[in-house]
């Protein structure tokens, strides 16, 4: 886009070169459009099976507030929605203070040498596979925090999963909002110091407000990641295959994602074999996927809108 357009210069040289240029241009175009094909394939496969699912069940059963148990034909979406909401909310309660705190410290207080060491370590935390954090949630968070500290009934609960997801998305919050704060031009800080402001005042009243759209973006993207996170909840959520409707985070439960994963782990259901309920369970996978896709897409679009505003500001 930034490149000059050499074809207007009339200096392309001989025909073979021109033809090769055109061939290469076309193949790059095809590669570029392949991403559109992926989106179309995702939407098509999700909606096709979701339509089959929705046309084969009584729509009233989607909101019965009793249980999600696809193997016996109970498809209560509210159970999963509330589960997802609780896990994401707990995750954000952890990730917002920790992530923002770490970001402000790295961007405004840390010496360059300290920052060069600490930032890669935080990025290592971001690179830890989610299943490993799931194991950590069961092996450490469950017994030590949920049971000992908060006197929860069991190691396995939505709260355990939420804390695990919180640790998982903290580096995302930290890294995106740190970038946003470092993008704030130094002249703003200098003006603030020039007025006699302390560093604390400068950070809170000048830098953070200037970077607010990037910070909001980091939070929205983290929330979207938390909703889409699967394995931590599948391991630590405590429910497998089915879950009762609950609004208590210390109960075991399922989210959209962990319902998908646990349904898929019973391979016979995914193959679409068995009775009619099993077939419906297979189709319900895609319905869950569609709901998840739409939810995260909306969040991501809002998040990306804020990220773009940061770029345009300075």
């Amino acid at each position: 886009m930034t490149a000059l357009d050499p074809s207007t210069l009339g200096l392309e040289g001989d025909r073979r070169r021109v033809r090769r240029e055109r061939r290469i241009r076309i193949s790059f175009w095809v590669a570029g459009m392949s991403t559109l094909a992926i989106s179309i394939a995702i939407i098509a496969s999700l909606t096709a099976n979701s339509v089959t699912f929705l046309s084969n069940i009584d729509l009233d059963t989607l909101l019965t507030f009793d249980k999600w148990a696809p193997r016996i034909g109970k498809f209560d979406i509210a159970t999963l929605f509330v589960g997802s909401l609780m896990v994401s909310a707990i995750a954000m309660v952890i990730a917002i203070p920790l992530g923002l705190g770490a970001a402000v410290y790295l961007a405004e207080y840390a010496k360059p040498r300290v920052r060069r060491v600490l930032k890669p370590i935080l990025e290592v935390l971001a690179g830890i596979p989610s299943i490993v954090l799931g194991f950590f949630a069961i092996a450490w968070i469950g017994p030590n925090i949920i049971v000992d500290l908060l006197h929860g009934p069991s190691d396995f609960s939505l709260a355990t999963a939420g804390l695990g997801v919180g640790i998982l998305v903290t580096p995302l919050v930290a890294s995106v909002s740190e970038d946003a704060m470092r993008a704030v031009p130094y002249s703003l800080r200098e003006a603030s110091y020039g007025m006699g402001a302390r560093r604390f005042t400068t950070v809170v009243r000048v830098v953070v407000p200037a970077a607010i759209s990037g910070i909001v973006a980091s939070l929205i993207l983290a929330a979207s990641r938390a909703i889409g996170e699967t394995m931590v909840i599948a391991l630590a959520g405590g429910a497998f295959g089915e879950a009762h409707f609950t609004t208590n985070p210390s109960d075991p439960g399922l989210t959209f994602t962990s319902a998908l994963a646990s349904l898929a782990a019973g391979t016979d259901q995914v193959a679409g074999g068995g009775g009619s309920d099993a077939g419906q369970a297979f189709n319900s996978l895609f319905f869950l996927g569609l709901v998840l896709f739409v939810l995260t897409l909306l969040l991501n679009m809002v998040g990306n809108f804020f990220v773009r505003r940061v770029r345009e500001a300075y």
Binding site: M1, G32, M33, T35, L36, I38, S39, A41, I42, S45, L46, A48, N49, L221, S224, R225, I227, G228, E229, T230, T257, L260, A261, A264, V270, L285, F286, G289, L292, F293, T296, L297, L299, N300, M301, G303, N304
Partner: peptide, 27 residues
């Protein structure tokens, strides 16, 4: 078109991994 492709790529990056699993399963 280009801007749409770029927007689409950013959105694809945020799609949860299970959804890609569903894509792989059906395709």
């Amino acid at each position: 078109l280009t801007r749409f492709v770029q927007l689409n790529i950013r959105n694809l990056a945020g799609v949860p991994s299970v959804v890609y699993g569903l894509l792989g399963l059906s395709i």
